[in-house]
């Protein structure tokens, strides 16, 4: 969080002298912030693997969950960087593209759900 504050001050400083460089500094600061956040997510996979054994869930559900989580992470990063540099339209398009890709990953899960429901109905 300290990094975010420092980055904000730097962007303001750069914006005063060099307007077009400010956008780039903001984008780089965002990426560094997220990179730091990613580091403490390392142990996440181990936790999930143990969870699958305990809960008896099917493994591909959890890999799907991880995939969607990663995709939302990347999509949010791209959308906000575009918005940061002033391209609001592009940001919305990036968000939509990310959601479409996520839906493509989720589709088989929906099929399983439907099969389960059909099995319930006699």
């Amino acid at each position: 969080m300290g990094l975010a504050a420092a980055a904000a001050v730097l962007c303001m400083l750069v914006r005063r002298w060099q307007p077009d460089m400010a956008g780039v500094t903001a984008a780089v600061a965002g990426c560094i912030l997220l990179l730091g956040a990613l580091e403490n997510l390392e142990g996440f996979k181990g936790l999930l693997d143990r969870l699958t054994e305990l809960g008896g869930l099917r493994a591909d559900y959890l890999t799907m969950l991880l995939k969607v989580l990663g995709m939302s992470y990347a999509t949010e990063l791209a959308a906000q960087t575009c918005e940061d540099l002033g391209e609001n339209g592009l940001a919305l398009k990036a968000g939509m593209a990310g959601r479409l890709c996520m839906f493509a990953v989720i589709a088989p899960l929906l099929m399983d759900l439907l099969d389960m429901i059909m099995a319930l109905i006699p």
Binding site: C31, L34, G70, Y73
Partner: peptide, 12 residues
């Protein structure tokens, strides 16, 4: 670098 680590963490 960010996207590389993203790919490794979430096995995307």
């Amino acid at each position: 670098e960010l996207f590389g680590s993203l790919k490794s963490v979430f096995s995307l």
